[in-house]
Design a protein around this nucleic acid. Structure first.
Length: 99
DNA sequence: TTTCTAACA
DNA sequence: TGTTAGTA
């Protein structure tokens, strides 16, 4: 059967995540430590990076190159998430003929 | 693979 | 402050 995969459960080991993102192994671990990213874990405790995580890593990579430090990036990611949520609410409100 | 530590820029 | 290398 066709195994259904979600962008939220793409499974990458940290080594391939580092390879694809162009970052170092230690850096990825540091990012998680700083709270910039939160990959899921297997029972054994190994990190599993999803497709979403990969996009997030690329995003982080861009911000790093922009000159932001990890704390700053953390704030940007939080604000972007909040902004996306607010936009979704606004779109929903506009689509509702309530009035 | 994980974590921690130390050194470097 | 963030990355890299070596370790158990």
């Amino acid at each position: 059967m066709a195994p259904k995969r979600d962008s939220a459960d793409g499974v990458y080991a940290i080594s391939v995540a580092a390879e694809l993102s162009g970052l170092g192994l230690s850096s990825l671990r540091l990012y998680e430590r700083k709270g910039l990213i939160a990959p899921s874990r297997t029972e054994g405790g190994t990190r599993r990076y999803s497709e979403d995580d990969m996009q997030r890593l690329e995003h982080i990579s861009e911000l790093v190159e922009a000159g932001l430090n990890l704390e700053g990036i953390k704030l940007v990611l939080a604000l972007e998430a909040e902004n996306a949520q607010l936009r979704a609410q606004l779109a929903k409100a506009r689509a509702t003929p309530a009035r």
